[in-house]
Simulated scan of single mutants.
Amino acid sequence: MSQNNMAYVGTTTNFKPKSRLFRFYGGILFTLAIAAIGTVASNLPILDRIGAMLTSILIAVVYGNVFGYPESIHTGIQFSGHKILRFAIILYGFKLNIDVVINQGGLLLVHDILSILVAISITVLLGKLFKGEKMLTLLLGIGTGVCGAAAIAAVSPVVNADDEDTALGAGIIALVGTVFAIGYALIRPILPISPVQFGIWSGISLHEIAHVAAAAATAGPNALEIGLLAKLGRVFLLIPLSMILSLWTRRNKKQGEAKRAPFPWFLIGFLAASIIGTYFHIPKIILKEISDVIGPFLLAAAMVGLGLHVNVSRLRNRALRPLLAMLIASIVLSVFSYATLWF
């Protein structure tokens, strides 16, 4: 072999590892960069109403449909959309104070269970009636009943949802939840309920923690405190719900595939984070940084990785009917949970 050929072989051999590193780290940095842009942009008028995660998803969807999916960094994007997603859900566990939920939110847990049952069952039933996409409909029902995009992100790997369904579900739930939060704040002055009742109503019916905080805060600090407590109960119920879904998924798989059904190990991490945040003496400023800054940012980056898969031309066929089912279910949940305040 000539020296030129030997040099060429050596160059090729050295290039491949660099290429693999670029596909991996380049993809991760790409999703983090878009999440950072989305986080900054979410401070702008209008975008400040929908939040950093939805803004990041929208940027990713626009990029993917205008410039195409960046295949050259696919490995890192996939890592963000799956591995970083699970890590973000684990960090989300620091938001959950188990001791407060168990000792102070006992009765509220009954409301929370009813909310989850109503939201999921009505969304799924309407999805079947409207002949909507089954998986996307299920994700929207879970997001409506439990804790919005975080719930969708948590259960997606459990029920084997694809990336497009997960990104669509998270984006829809964040947008609709924002509209409902604004609506709650606007109608609060005309409702014949106390600030505490309004906080409970917000906590047991609105989609995300941020939506509950935004709506309940308009009724004062007591409403905000009880609203967040009610919402944390729904977050707590994400753990048993995910376990039930895992068993359901395994049972519905063919016998030969049953062993390959994934167990949601990351939810053990979610529970561990909740226990650490509740019972270990960690400075509140550190917990707040993890749960309110690092966790949401990583979740936004993960959603960017999923949002790049969304094909806008398919949105009308795939998302319209599940969206309609989820909208009706959200209205029913609001009315139902309002009625339960008097019992």
Rank of each mutant, 00 (worst) to 15 (best):
N4T: 09
V9K: 15
T11F: 13
P17V: 15
P17N: 11
Y25Q: 14
G26Y: 13
I28F: 06
T31M: 01
V40H: 02
D48P: 00
I50L: 13
G51K: 07
G51Q: 04
G51N: 10
G51A: 07
Y63F: 15
F67A: 09
Y69H: 06
E71Y: 08
E71D: 12
H74C: 00
T75R: 10
Q78L: 09
F79I: 02
I84K: 02
I84N: 10
L85G: 07
L85R: 09
L85Q: 08
I89L: 14
I90Y: 03
L91S: 01
Y92L: 12
F94I: 06
I102C: 05
N103C: 12
N103H: 10
Q104L: 03
L107R: 15
D112S: 15
I116C: 14
V118T: 13
A119K: 05
I120G: 03
V124P: 12
K128E: 14
K131C: 05
E133D: 15
L140P: 13
G141E: 06
G143R: 08
A149Q: 03
A150V: 00
A151Y: 09
A153R: 02
A153S: 14
S156G: 07
P157D: 05
G169T: 04
G169P: 09
I172Y: 15
G177T: 12
T178Q: 10
F180K: 03
R188H: 03
I190W: 10
S194A: 05
S194Y: 00
P195H: 00
Q197L: 13
S202W: 04
S202V: 09
G203Y: 12
L206K: 13
E208S: 06
T218C: 01
A219C: 04
L224Q: 06
L224N: 08
I226E: 00
G227L: 06
K231Q: 14
G233K: 12
G233R: 07
V235H: 00
L238K: 05
M243P: 04
S246F: 02
R251D: 15
N252Q: 11
K253T: 10
K254I: 07
K254C: 09
G256N: 15
K259F: 14
W265K: 03
L267S: 01
L267T: 00
G269N: 01
A272F: 15
S274C: 03
I275M: 02
I275E: 01
I285R: 13
L287W: 07
E289T: 07
I294E: 07
G295H: 01
P296L: 12
P296W: 10
L298A: 11
L299S: 01
G305I: 00
L306W: 00
G307S: 05
L315C: 06
L320N: 10
M326N: 11
S330A: 15
A339E: 06
L341M: 01
